[in-house]
Simulated scan of single mutants.
Amino acid sequence: MKLKLFALLCLSFQVQPATEQVVIASDIWCPYVCADNSGYFVELTQQAFDSVAISTKFETIPFQRALRLAQADRIHAVLAVSSEHIGKANLQDSDLILGQYANDFYVHVNSSWQFSSLVDLNNKTIASILGYDYSDKLNSLLVKSPTSFRASGETPLKTNLNLLQKGRVDVLYQLH
């Protein structure tokens, strides 16, 4: 199942004079946002602000926290958000689309399981990332499932990959 969604830069402020530093946050979601303040979203955003002489500071923090801080005007922008995140958090949309992402299921190399419909997820332990928007149907399934695991923190994908590798979850549901 692939759902094409747009990844957006979410701004929660109006650009001020060039002396202000813009604080931008996101969780690590390489190749978009990587641990060493690289990744193509980070680099494109940096270049855009540099072109208008605005300094930037990037922070890698849990995604849910980044959305809350933007809502509270404690940071200026969040990278890699969907229009659903912007609406739910009541943030200002920059109308700048930097890329697309898709949703996919991953299983251990020894598994023969394949996805064809939501019914296939019944009785499966599913790992996903807290705060990510996977579509209304999948979000509902993940919330209702007693065996789903929603990772958070600065490296939730790494956590979920470790769980899958160790056989603690059956399916990893991931945006890429």
Rank of each mutant, 00 (worst) to 15 (best):
I97V: 15
Q64V: 15
S128Q: 04
R68M: 07
Q47F: 02
L161H: 02
E154A: 08
L141W: 08
H85A: 09
G153F: 04
N162Q: 13
A127D: 06
V107P: 00
N162M: 11
S51W: 00
A72R: 15
Y106V: 00
V81M: 11
K137T: 06
N162C: 05
D50R: 13
S51A: 15
L157Y: 10
F115I: 02
S94V: 09
V52R: 08
D50H: 09
L69M: 14
I126S: 01
L96Q: 12
G39L: 12
S94R: 15
R150M: 13
L118E: 12
L91P: 06
E154K: 14
A102P: 01
S128A: 15
S145F: 01
L67H: 03
S148M: 04
N123H: 12
G87S: 13
L44C: 04
N103R: 13
L98I: 10
F41K: 10
V109Q: 10
D104C: 09
E154H: 08
T60E: 08
V78H: 10
T56P: 01
S116V: 14
Y132R: 08
G153H: 05
D136Q: 10
A70D: 06
D133K: 00
S148C: 04
L67N: 04
P156I: 12
D95V: 07
N160Y: 01
G153E: 07
G99R: 11
